[in-house]
């Protein structure tokens, strides 16, 4: 990069943006939103019980870290999300690949998967509690339910998009079907797969909060729901904020890993 970045490049369609400029714009935009919010709250335009200023939310968060085990609750939630997510991924990747590799498997599974995929997870909470009680199993099950069936179809689509010619090249140099799947199809679909996993991980948090609100005595969903009972709006918002921060950090880390692993793109 010749350092030749001009202001008008910002408004050119798909013009490349230097990493530092992009980071600055991101920070400035977030700061602007927070500043407006803070200003509106300070001027007394909103009722602090309903809509506290960000400074109040942050000091509530500090308090909760200090004496309400916020970090531990966050950790519990993260563990739940990741164990359910990994379980869903480990099952969805081979099944999804098989669904598009072998038409018969696809034909058999697609209607079932599509049916379950459209069931709203909250509607299955009562059933899940009847089956698994209110322990960890229920939470993992609900999260798994919300992600596995979506992921299976995404994986099968990723696999379908692998160019036929890649498969044919592998065959003409003597690969067996298993080798074609592992060395070529899986490798070709990997960047798309990692993107889909990243997006699915975000959904996990939605289902987690639902599960923790209904049946939990720990985790961020529980913290938020408990604070609501006493109308402690800053604490409710602090819990929500923390989820956002965890999501942002995870996403950025996964994006960086993606860039590093798939440098050839």
């Amino acid at each position: 990069m010749g350092g030749g970045f001009a202001l008008r490049d910002l408004f050119r369609l798909r013009a490349p943006l230097p990493r530092t400029v992009s980071a600055l714009i991101a920070l400035a935009a977030s700061a602007l939103v927070l500043a407006v919010w803070e200003g509106v709250a300070r001027l007394g335009l909103t009722n602090p019980v309903f809509f506290p200023a960000p400074s109040a939310v942050i000091s509530a968060m500090m308090r909760m870290f200090a004496d309400q085990h916020l970090a531990w609750n966050a950790w519990v939630s993260i563990l739940r999300v990741w164990s359910a997510f990994l379980l869903a991924a480990v099952m969805a990747i081979p099944i999804g690949m098989m669904m598009s590799a072998y038409r018969a498997i696809g034909a058999a599974l697609e209607p079932i998967v599509d049916f379950i995929r459209y069931l709203p997870v909250p509607a299955l909470v009562p059933l899940s509690i009847i089956w698994f009680g209110v322990g960890e199993e229920t939470k993992i099950f609900l999260l798994w339910l919300g992600t596995f069936f979506q992921l299976v179809l995404l994986v099968s689509d990723d696999m379908r998009r692998v160019p036929q010619e890649y498969i044919e090249i592998a065959y003409t140099v003597g690969a067996k079907p298993g080798q074609v799947l592992k060395d070529v199809a899986f490798r070709a679909m990997l960047p798309g797969l990692v993107d889909n996993l990243r997006i699915t991980l975000g959904w996990c948090w939605t289902y987690l909060i639902i599960a923790e609100i209904v049946a939990a005595d720990s985790g961020l969903g529980f913290v938020i729901w408990a604070a609501r009972r006493y109308m402690k709006t800053p604490e409710v918002m602090a819990g929500v904020f923390l989820i956002g921060i965890i999501g942002l950090l995870t996403d950025q880390l996964l994006r960086a890993a993606h860039r590093r692993a798939f440098r050839y793109l």
């Binding site: 010619e165 090249i169 065959y171 140099v173 070529v184 490798r187 070709a188 050839y264 793109l265």
Partner: peptide, 16 residues
């Protein structure tokens, strides 16, 4: 199989 090698019209290679 590998005894019949093929150069495809669209000359693909694996990007990874």
């Amino acid at each position: 199989d590998w005894r019949r090698g093929m150069v495809f019209q669209s000359y693909s290679s694996f990007p990874w």
